[in-house]
Amino acid sequence: MINFTEAILVIILLSVLFSLGSTRLLALVRIMVLQGVAVSLIPLFLKDHGTLGSGPIIFFQVMILIKGVLIPALLYLAVKRVAIKREIEPFIGYHASIMTGLVIILVSVFITNHLRLSLPTGQATLLIAAITTMASGFFLMMARKKAITQVIGYLMLENGIYLIGTALTKHSHTLYIVEFGVLLDLLVGVMIMGIILNNINTAFDDVDTTLLGRLKD
């Protein structure tokens, strides 16, 4: 039997590596769709199918809608408006970024093994994927010039944290209203970041973060 959880986790890991190596903004947004959907599906495969009532089912649908459709749509709009098909312009090259991604995976494996957590069987991979996603999100925020890649990096970080939440805790899923609040914050956050991006673009004619250096001591 195919282990769906592991398969999805491999997809998440691949999406992280792809995002580090992608040269186009639109490709990056598509990768975020894939990652968002994959991350939202994970809890479904971790739970016993018998315990899922109608409330959780609706919640997971909303989550896929927000992470897989609404947030990428906002990003897509921002890319279309702000920087039409322009390259990502890295501080650190694509090959070096992918290498960094691989190193991050190795470090995550090391951390996961070192922690010796009493994780349920098969969840070690989940923790590896989560730590990798978080760390790569951070890396993406720092290694790219465009402000929009910082938003994408933030989303990856959030995805990683969400994975840790599902991987490690039982309690975080007892109250779906709370989870929904977290998602809503994320959605509104991306919306506000998009509005500011648009304004940065009109004010500076670019969304390069190196232009944002006027406020200093």
Partner: peptide, 16 residues
């Protein structure tokens, strides 16, 4: 422009 920069830093740094 300064306000834009401040807002961008605020939202990104605080959100992360």
């Amino acid at each position: 422009r300064e306000a834009l920069e401040a807002t961008w830093k605020y939202v990104i740094i605080c959100s992360v």
